[in-house]
Amino acid sequence: MTRSLYALPRPGLRWLPVWRRNFLVWRKLAIPSVLGNLADPLIYMLGLGYGLGGLLPQVSGVSYVSFLAAGTIVASTMNAATFEALYSAFSRMHVQKTWEAILNTPLSLDHVLTGELMWAASKSLLSGLAILLVVTALGLTASPLALWIVPVIFLTGLCFAALGLIVCALAPSYDFFMYYFTLFVTPMLLLSGVFFPADQLPAAVQAVSGWLPLAHAVQLARPLLHGAVPADAALHVGALLAIAGVAFFIASVLTRRRLLK
């Protein structure tokens, strides 16, 4: 903390103009963007929740659609942050050379990356919030504790934005992102307790799944949605913060190596 204070003599918000640039672009395309972010996860949640849920007894003490709701909120947050930090950030870095233009101003790469991190997290917050609103409107939550899901969404977004920026820094082209999705995102989606309780998995797999960032997010969001204080909340929050911090540091080092040779 002291070190970073000394490293940044002006602890101001110099990344904010980068965030505002992305916000201005988003504002022009807001309606299709929001619809796209909302429709897909909702179709899955409602289709699986009511369709598959009709065949199931209660899952972990609640209806299946209610079980699925918390998972959908964080999974959709993850997707939004990941897409923004992969495809959109890569376009700005590599295709449009937007970052290069910014680096010719007094801003540094650290400001650019912080702006991108905060932007991807903000955009994913919007995605998660939209699902939370629909879930609330459907009567799938009634507890005021559900409001605590808002910071959980933002933290989840930060975590996956930071991870995504690592992949962005390494990518030679858009095709590279497919590896990240097939090798990391999709397995994580299935192992983190989004669609079914993770304790259904073999013990060996559970040992891995407990470490996944999305699993921490699920274990925070699900109890909150159902009106309970999450067990080991500090551990899960700490794990998400640690992953976000370490991932952002790695992304910064890799991006500096890529762009500031």
Partner: peptide, 25 residues
């Protein structure tokens, strides 16, 4: 003035200037 065009394709001419000026605070 860089060698390769890196204007913001999503913006109008004046938005390009506005957004760039913000980077200078």
């Amino acid at each position: 003035v860089p060698q390769f065009d890196n204007l913001d394709p999503d913006f109008t001419a004046s938005e390009n200037l506005l957004v760039y000026g913000r980077y200078f605070g």
